[in-house]
């Protein structure tokens, strides 16, 4: 039923787009019709796919590295009072700096390749993953930790066998946010300076007044983001189901 609803919403969106083109009479270099965009997408599928692959790689690498760093930081914050005292205020402070403003610097430091885009994606998802997972790790019921202590478990054993499984739904929440933010980070990085990727292709097409190609790239990016959100949502749902029995 949900899938059917999504299909109807998609068809309605395309119909509204077509109606807007017909009503306004906008030229195709301002607002191309859905049919024209589809035709361009088919004709230019090789260039779109080759750039989509680069963006997908940046997003997935950013997600994996950002999640790994976020999880490691959250565990460190949970186990070390010193880390909490020093790192937590720093983490909050870093949120005052707009990550997008760092994109030119990252491009300067790490070049036009995928490295600077991956780091951009890592930076943008690091805080939500760290924050959500640390919050989950901190909310283990104290009575459960007391029980573990009376059973002779060390803090490390409690961490791995109680706290982390208990916090998996919170990690899922962080991952859901990361799935939304990671493509934004990668594309912003590509806009600032890149030679490949969907963000680069959109800027290139825009500069050459190939608005239909720009739209095709944009729609490809949207499809990739929805697919990523769906996959991460499935993973997060599995984490929820595991932790809640």
């Amino acid at each position: 039923m949900k899938r059917l609803d999504a299909l109807w919403a998609l068809l309605a969106g395309i119909a509204a787009w077509q109606a807007l083109v017909m009503i306004t009479g906008a030229p195709h270099f301002i607002l191309p019709s859905p049919l024209r965009v589809a035709s361009t997408a088919i004709k230019s599928y090789e260039i779109i796919l080759s750039n989509a692959w680069v963006t997908a790689l940046e997003v997935v690498l950013g997600l994996v590295l950002g999640t790994a760093l976020g999880v490691a930081t959250a565990i460190h914050l949970t186990t070390s009072a010193l880390a909490r005292r020093i790192m937590l205020p720093m983490l909050v402070f870093t949120q005052a700096v707009p990550v997008f403003a760092l994109a030119p610097i990252l491009t300067l430091w790490f070049g036009y390749g995928i490295g600077s885009k991956v780091i951009m994606a890592v930076l943008i998802i690091y805080f939500p993953v760290t924050s959500a997972f640390h919050d989950g790790l901190s909310r283990t019921p104290p009575a459960l930790l007391d029980l573990a202590k009376t059973m002779g478990a060390t803090p490390r054993q409690s961490l791995w066998r109680l706290r982390i499984p208990h916090a998996l739904p919170s990690l899922g929440t962080g991952l859901r946010l990361a799935a939304v933010y990671a493509p934004i980070g990668a594309v912003i990085g590509e806009w600032v300076g890149a030679s490949k990727g969907l963000g680069y292709l959109m800027l290139l097409a825009n500069g050459r007044a190939k608005i239909d190609l720009m739209f095709a790239a944009l729609i490809t990016l949207a499809i990739m983001t929805v697919a990523l959100h769906w996959a991460i949502g499935k993973l997060a749902a599995r984490l929820d189901a595991y932790a809640q029995g």
Binding site: P141, A143, L144, D146, L147, T150, M151, L162, P165, Y242, A243, Q244, G245
Partner: peptide
């Protein structure tokens, strides 16, 4: 010493 609380404290994932 072992301990049993008001709440059963069973782990949902086991």
């Amino acid at each position: 010493v072992s301990y049993m609380a008001q709440s059963d404290l069973l782990l949902p994932w086991l």
